[in-house]
Amino acid sequence: MNSGIPLHIKQLVKQQDDIHLGPIDLELEPNMTYALLGPNSSGKSTLLKCCMNLMKPASGIIEIYGRSYPQDEHRIKQLIAFAPDPLEGCELFTLGQMGDMIAPWYASWERSHFLRRAEQFKVPLDKRYEKMSQGERKKVALTLALSTQAPVLLLDEPTNGLDINSRNRFKEMLVEDAERIERTVLMTTHAIEDIRQFADQILLLKNGRIEGPLEKDRLIQSWRRVWLSADKLPDLSVIPGVVEYNGYPYPHLITRNWQETLDSLNANQIPIVRDQPLSLDELMERLLNE
């Protein structure tokens, strides 16, 4: 069992072409899955590569369970695994060969575990990476990362290219591992279904800065669309939580704090016709565009 903060980023700054990150401060808790969201070219993949020391930040510190680069790199690489999108420099290798190369790095590597993962994903051990489809390449990266059994897992667009069966197998593997390993997962994604199925917490990468973590379930409960009776329309200036009001075709508002808004509407005797949570895709879009 490792003690301390699984991933702790302090004042990280990184400039890469048109991407500027930072300063970023972030702490991830054990046994949680974080979805990192942001527009294209916002720096999500760059941030993961900095966490692996594949890219060097201009300044700042990255710690894995209290260990930092470069002095503790050998130990850190035993505690963290990365599934990039795509794997680079592996074109001439098979999954079996890549497994043999990675195995010595991880004391927790078990060949039987690795073979079972490959079989579950139905990905061949003897086929060169360059000849694989996009979905097969993704399954190779996930097979290798999951087989390390590392307590910190960085996943770049983990379901990109996966079919429905493979996505379900991936979810089952994460659930199975959670019963044995206290693991922290940080995944970048554009897929709403990934957020719905996997994420406990949401991280927003906007203009080089991180907002969050934001608890997914609490967000879903807090953001709501509310239809009101036209008989007594509200004065928005006295209603907390409201971010939008529209009178067409029926009076309705959107709140980011349902309980506060509900209390205020009741206190002001403003009738509620009905209410419903925002869809997850609309909620994520609003958070990213705020």
Rank of each mutant, 00 (worst) to 15 (best):
M1D: 10
S3M: 03
K10V: 11
V13D: 14
K14D: 09
Q16W: 13
I19K: 05
I19E: 01
L21T: 00
L21F: 00
D25G: 05
P30W: 02
N31P: 02
M32W: 04
M32G: 08
Y34P: 05
A35P: 01
L36H: 05
P39F: 09
S42Y: 00
L47D: 00
C51S: 04
M55L: 15
M55I: 08
G60H: 10
I61F: 09
E63H: 02
S68A: 10
Q71D: 14
I76Y: 07
Q78V: 00
A83S: 13
P84T: 07
L87D: 02
C90R: 05
E91R: 04
G96M: 06
G96A: 11
Q97C: 01
Q97I: 08
M98D: 09
D100S: 10
A103R: 14
P104Q: 06
S108C: 04
F114I: 08
L115T: 09
R117W: 12
R117Y: 13
A118L: 05
Q120H: 15
F121Y: 11
K122T: 14
E130T: 07
S133E: 10
Q134Y: 06
Q134N: 07
K138T: 13
K139V: 03
T143N: 12
L144K: 03
A145W: 07
S147K: 05
T148Y: 03
Q149S: 12
Q149N: 14
V152N: 05
V152E: 08
L155W: 06
E157D: 13
E157V: 09
N160G: 05
N160L: 15
G161E: 08
G161P: 08
L162Q: 06
D163F: 01
R167W: 06
R169P: 00
R169D: 13
R169A: 15
R169Q: 15
E172T: 07
M173R: 04
E176M: 09
A178E: 12
R180N: 14
I181E: 06
E182Y: 06
V185T: 13
I192P: 02
D194A: 12
I195W: 01
Q197K: 12
Q197C: 12
A199R: 07
I202V: 13
N207E: 15
I210G: 00
L214Q: 07
L214E: 03
E215A: 14
D217F: 00
D217E: 15
R218W: 03
L219M: 05
I220H: 01
I220Q: 10
R224I: 00
S229W: 13
D231G: 15
K232M: 07
L236A: 00
I239F: 08
I239A: 00
P240L: 08
G241C: 06
E244I: 02
E244K: 09
Y245D: 00
N246F: 04
N246K: 12
H252E: 04
L253P: 05
L253D: 03
T255D: 10
T255K: 06
R256C: 12
T261L: 07
S264T: 04
L265Y: 08
A267D: 14
Q269H: 14
I270T: 13
R274G: 03
D275S: 12
Q276G: 06
Q276W: 01
S279A: 13
D281R: 07
D281G: 02
M284C: 15
M284L: 15
R286C: 00
L287N: 01
E290F: 09
